[in-house]
Design a protein around this nucleic acid. Structure first.
Lengths: 103, 103
DNA sequence: TCTATAGTTCCAATATATTCGAACTATAGA
DNA sequence: TCTATAGTTCGAATATATTGGAACTATAGA
């Protein structure tokens, strides 16, 4: 298996981003990635859900263009595409991150 | 028929807002309401869709807390709850509006 | 080469959304 | 009181999402 494909930023749609962020589990993943500000494996995220469900949510985050996943050995390292998204849709993701950071 | 019920701002959830904004038709409605900056009837919005579909989308926008609808005679006047949403989730809606305003 | 680990894919079950015609409600105005 | 208008609700068809178990792929390390 090679590296995973991600949509180039020009193809990223706002509606897909909104949709990806409309699920609590995915919002939590995005929040954790932002809070840590580093690459994290799926396992590290520790939402108590089956692997296949997590995989499904990551797929949606990836296809929306929010998350980039790099394969490194047997781990998949996930990170937020924050800079790119901010450049294309200024303020959107940062405002969402701020909203979920404060309880 | 009386006035329509809307969720108080304290009950408005970010996930519901994200979901409501994930549909192109609803995003268009929200964009038009913001651009005009005034109350508009459903009919005025002129997306070429059947009434029942429009009604469905407005229901979702209302229940997400994005749109307020006031009944005035036989018309329903819709407006964005921009100030309230901005206060609760600063920057989110404004950033989305900016993103859809510039093609 | 064997085994454990990380994650994906496949599948089916269930749930939720979307669409739109038809029937309905409420009001304004003749 | 009748009619036209604005919008909602109902109902059924279709589409899309979510969930999670089981099988699979790929790699690291013994």
């Amino acid at each position: 298996m090679r590296q995973i494909k991600h949509p180039p930023i020009e193809q990223v749609e706002l509606t897909d981003i909104m949709y990806a962020l409309s699920d609590p589990a995915r919002l939590e993943i995005v929040g954790l990635l932002a809070k840590e500000g580093r690459q994290m494996t799926c396992g590290e995220l520790e939402l108590n859900r089956p692997k296949s469900s997590m995989s499904h949510h990551f797929k949606i985050l990836r296809s929306a263009g929010l998350v980039e996943t790099i394969i490194d050995g047997k781990e998949h390292l996930n990170s937020l595409r924050l800079a790119e998204i901010e450049q294309k849709f200024p303020g959107v993701l940062n405002a969402v991150l701020k909203a979920i950071a404060s309880p």
